[in-house]
Design a protein around this nucleic acid. Structure first.
Lengths: 214, 214
DNA sequence: AGCTATCCGGAGAGATTCTCCATATCGTGA
DNA sequence: TCACGATATGGAGAATCTCTCCGGATAGCT
């Protein structure tokens, strides 16, 4: 997905939703070292697999080992677990918010909101609900990395909701926070429910019923 | 439920909704030793405080230390973390389900269901959402201890919901599982949200709107 | 009191998180 | 092309946690 940009020397392509090597430090003086970038990619890739296999509690040590780096290197790049989770989920979130922009011009604001919430629920449920856990964890500790990711989703939800409210199909007293929390809640409480795979959608449909004003 | 033989030698006060010493072994031969019962109480009490302070991830070692017992003793009584959590929450759940029995004879089945769900949400939210986490964890590993606790809540919800459905104020296509999962979801996703204390109730009100059929 | 099933407690193995810093490596200017 | 110094590395290790094992203590029964 996100990887081999295969830069010959330095052709950092100005691609859209891909993360720059170090958005924080604005390249004063020297450039980011190539090995640092390479290791970062390796870590993210190993983390993606490890999280998929073992859930969001996967051992960071083990991830470092599988990435072929030392624990210190992992912690240098990602000081906290949410930071690493965010990096892993970055492109998924990009896709999600990109989908929202298309939906903002859809015919039915109501259906657009519903469809995006379904996509968001799917996102929050992947990998044993780690998407949802991530969003929750970010809320408590507003780190630079996590907050940004959560804010994007909130803003996206706000756009779609406002449009649906303006067209009169959604209750005007709803906020984007309401929607996000309800859907994240469904994701969390059904994260491990293997009994009925359609249950999450069932619950979301119920919530959507409440969203539509009568 | 399964017994308090009301031991005479014990000055352990015979309070109501407290858990029996060992429901599993049906007292063949010898009686449960007094020190075992005493230690069990101490552990539960220490756990209650520790979980309240540090959330459901509190160190079991630390709990044992504060209870004045060794780690081995703690694990003898409570093999898993959910087992200990269940013990801590036992009387709270008793209260919750007891309240439901009163509500089953209330005038308005609709209001009875709503009120109980509010109480259930409060229960699931206490101590940084550990009530909710507990219910979720039980779902994945049906241990004897946890399953029982979850089943009781499910049954209680079912009773109130069935009555509301019969009276025509609740959608007939809802199940008790739906309700429990929605409320647990709200509890989880708002567990750490300190911004707006009324948010959980707000979300529950929304859900209740969806429950009532129009 | 004595016997024995039961229980205690803490040592310790193994796993994990996170830090620190001597060393290796990369990017750059000459 | 080379040397220099800013950057990054990685792994030892401290601290913490979970969970097990078993010699020894103890409570209940007779």
């Amino acid at each position: 997905m996100t990887q081999p940009p295969s830069e010959p020397l330095e052709s950092l392509e100005p691609l859209g939703p891909l993360e720059p090597p170090k958005p924080s430090e604005p390249a004063r003086g020297r450039r980011t070292r190539a090995d640092a970038r390479r290791n970062r990619e390796r870590i993210v890739e190993a983390a993606r697999k490890a999280f998929a296999e073992s859930g969001p509690e996967a051992s960071l040590n083990e991830i470092a080992r599988r990435a072929g780096v030392g624990p210190g290197t992992l912690y240098r790049h990602f000081p906290t677990r949410p930071a690493l989770l965010t990096a892993v989920f970055q492109d998924r979130i990009d896709t999600l918010c990109g989908r929202a922009e298309e939906l903002l011009t859809a015919d039915s604001p109501d259906e657009a909101l519903a469809e995006w919430l379904r996509a968001f629920l799917a996102h929050a449920r992947v990998n044993q609900g780690m998407g949802g856990s991530l969003l929750i964890e970010e809320l408590e500790k507003p780190d630079a990395l996590g907050f940004d990711c959560h804010q994007r989703i909130q803003d996206t939800a706000h756009g779609l909701l406002a449009r649906a409210q303006h067209s009169g199909t959604a209750r005007p007293d709803l906020t984007a926070i309401d929607l996000v929390q309800l859907v994240v809640g469904i994701a969390l409480s059904t994260a491990h429910a293997t009994a009925d795979p359609s249950q999450p959608d069932r619950l979301l449909t119920l919530v959507l019923d409440a969203v539509r004003r009568r």
